[in-house]
């Protein structure tokens, strides 16, 4: 047996064709791939995109011989050099294998199980709740990425805050957006500081974006979108709503983005009357969205978005950090 970290193109291709025999694809965002060989024959492989383990497969002739445990030990060690919390999406029939590797299930659908290692969603959310002295009374909630915060988000938040005693604004902690989490969080805190019935909290590592969701389990794009929405909504319902005693979630109506529209429909299905869809705030009859703001920034610069964003976002964009992000947005456009 020989074990290797896959770096060169030919090895990657070999892993890709190996995965193909299991009907799996080596996803583009994979940044770590390990492979196990028996006399030059590839017999097992496991990959990861940052802290999300993906594309795990073992040759049928070599199953139940401890090879997977060997490979996963190597992968887990490698990943913990840079991450302190690991995740995996797997098929329900493989849950037991990952449980035996120490993983714990967060949520399961008919097609997928979402699991974690070195973390515990219940303990994490309870600690977050207790650290902030959040009481047990019923609450409303909003979940936003705010990349960056716009007047559209503010409209949604204010509407939600008016209809409830206590509103929790969850800010997506995942750091894969143009605006870093820390800054998105600060901008929101500043914009909402005069509201004493609003608490701003991070989502921690659990509500993840469509970008990091594995696409290789399912065949068509619509099913993938629905599955991602389902995992996210069930995680929210079974953990966040329970622990924070949330009875309502407010979202913006989604006329354009098909991803978000699928998301809202799935939410409606699972949250029922607990979901409140709010009409978007518009400027010149166009709904305000963070992506509109980003593309305006890209094309026309800072002054063009003044009407679209609150003061805290605008002030941030005038800072050195903000200026760097505007520059990055402009370059990103050129690269593609």
């Amino acid at each position: 047996m020989e074990f290797k970290e896959v770096v060169i193109k030919e090895e990657r291709q070999a892993v890709a064709s190996f995965l193909k025999t299991f009907n799996l694809t080596l996803e583009k965002d994979v940044d770590t791939t390990l492979a196990l060989y028996d006399e030059n024959t590839l017999i097992a492989t496991a990959s990861a995109s940052e802290n999300i383990i993906k594309c795990v497969a073992i040759h049928p002739d070599y199953q139940h011989q401890n090879h997977l445990n060997f490979l996963m030990s190597k992968l887990i060690k490698k990943l913990t050099e840079n991450h302190r919390h690991l995740f995996v999406y797997t098929m329900p029939e493989h849950v037991e294998i990952f449980k035996s590797l120490g993983f714990k299930e967060i949520v399961q659908t008919m097609n997928l199980s979402f699991m974690e290692l070195f973390g515990d969603i219940t303990a994490t959310l309870k600690a977050l709740r207790d650290n902030q002295n959040i009481d047990k009374a019923a609450k409303a909630s909003v979940v936003i990425n705010a990349n960056p915060l716009t007047n559209g988000h503010l409209h949604l938040i204010k509407t939600a805050a008016q209809s409830s005693k206590h509103l929790i604004v969850f800010v997506v902690s995942e750091d894969r957006s143009f605006f870093p989490f820390e800054d998105r969080f600060k901008i929101i805190k500043t914009a909402l500081k005069e509201y004493d019935n609003i608490t701003v909290l991070p989502t921690m590592d659990y509500l993840v974006s469509y970008a990091t969701f594995p696409k290789y389990f399912m065949k068509n794009e619509q099913t993938i979108k629905e599955e991602h929405a389902l995992i996210d909504v069930l995680t929210f319902k079974q953990h966040y709503m329970k622990i924070f005693n949330i009875s309502a979630r407010f979202v913006g109506e989604e006329p354009y983005s098909p991803v978000t529209d699928t998301y809202n429909q799935t939410m409606k299905h699972y949250l029922g009357d607990g979901l409140q869809i709010i009409k978007r705030k518009t400027i010149d009859e166009e709904p305000i969205s963070a992506s509109t703001v980003r593309s305006l920034l890209k094309k026309n610069g800072l002054e063009s978005i003044k009407r679209y964003v609150p003061k805290s976002t605008y002030d941030y964009l005038t800072s050195d950090k903000g200026q760097a992000i505007i520059k990055e947005l402009k370059n990103y456009d050129r690269r593609h």
Binding site: N66, N69, M72, S73, I76, E81, N82, H83, L101, G102
Partner: peptide, 17 residues
């Protein structure tokens, strides 16, 4: 990362983090 992992998940061993 401030997480330390030692050991393996192979038979007759354990992994500690």
């Amino acid at each position: 990362a401030d997480i330390i992992t030692v050991g393996t998940l192979e038979s007759s061993d354990c992994m500690v983090s």
